[in-house]
């Protein structure tokens, strides 16, 4: 019943199906691969992602946005099969809106987390069949506790809270080590970085990931292509403009030769 404010249930009653297992046909390459990262900085959480979508060794698209806003205070960064991931984001965005409008209150942060796990669980058959695996990072601002939070998931829907940072996607092993090193022995812990420095870190990390992972797109200055960087603070989600990324990249990421 709609009275409970559960949009996903309502969709199911309408005959909607999510995450049907379809055996991967031999020879079909499903687009995947990515590097996404989320890290806590001084004012909240920074979430960033490269912009490349690949299928096997082919680059499909170089302008993908993998850091998707679900509502004013939460984003989901996606690694895995984009078709499933985009659908998940659509379901989540509508579920949160529907809940807020029917119940006349925001869905709690825990409620939002549950909704993500629930969808991942529904998706298990498709994930195991190889056509729908999604490994997202969910980040948002929890108004109840007055803190920004990061959660990451495995493909079966298990939820883990990240204390300082989370990474996902094919390029993530490279930057996981860097994050650990920076956070532990760097000039200052990531959580104390101001906004601009956190953004510089994100650009450096994604450039490193692109260096070692062919499926991660780094910065393409000729085409003026920069990663997507979004900040979540108490005030909501904010996208860093390409102009600012360009300036920071030229100033603090490029090394003069």
């Amino acid at each position: 019943m709609g009275m409970q404010g559960d949009f996903f249930q309502l969709l199911k009653e309408q005959g909607y199906q999510f995450g049907n297992p379809v055996a991967a046909a031999a020879g079909i390459e499903v687009p995947t691969a990515t590097t996404i990262l989320a890290l806590k900085y001084r004012d909240g959480v920074l979430v960033a992602g490269d912009r490349r979508a690949t299928a096997g060794n082919m680059v499909m698209y170089d302008r993908t946005d993998k850091v998707l806003e679900i509502d004013r205070h939460s984003v989901m960064a996606i690694a895995g099969v984009p078709a499933t991931a985009y659908e998940m984001v659509r379901v989540l965005a509508h579920s949160f809106k529907y809940y807020r409008r029917t119940q006349l209150q925001e869905l709690s942060f825990e409620g939002k987390l549950r909704a993500v796990s629930k969808l991942l669980k529904e998706n298990v058959p498709a994930a195991l069949a190889g056509t729908g695996a999604v490994v997202p990072v969910f980040a948002g601002y929890d108004h109840e506790q007055g803190a920004a939070k990061i959660y990451f998931y495995d493909i079966l829907g298990a939820e883990f809270e990240a204390v300082e940072y989370a990474v996902s996607g094919s390029g993530s092993p490279t930057i996981r080590g860097i994050l650990h090193y920076q956070n532990t022995w760097g000039p200052q812990p990531l959580a104390s970085l101001p906004e601009e420095q956190a953004t510089v870190q994100a650009l450096r990390l994604l450039s490193s990931a692109a260096e070692f992972d062919s499926a991660t797109g780094g910065v393409n200055r000729e085409l003026n292509l920069y990663p997507v960087v979004k900040l979540i603070t108490e005030a909501g989600v904010r996208v860093i403009a390409d102009g600012d990324l360009k300036r920071l990249y030229e100033q603090d990421v490029l090394r003069a030769r």
């Binding site: 709609g2 009275m3 949009f7 309502l10 969709l11 309408q14 659509r90 379901v91 509508h94 809106k97 529907y98 409008r101 029917t102």
Partner: peptide, 13 residues
Amino acid sequence: RFSLLEMAHIEGF
């Protein structure tokens, strides 16, 4: 109101 919300969100989705 509920029937409108239901209709609007199903349609929007």
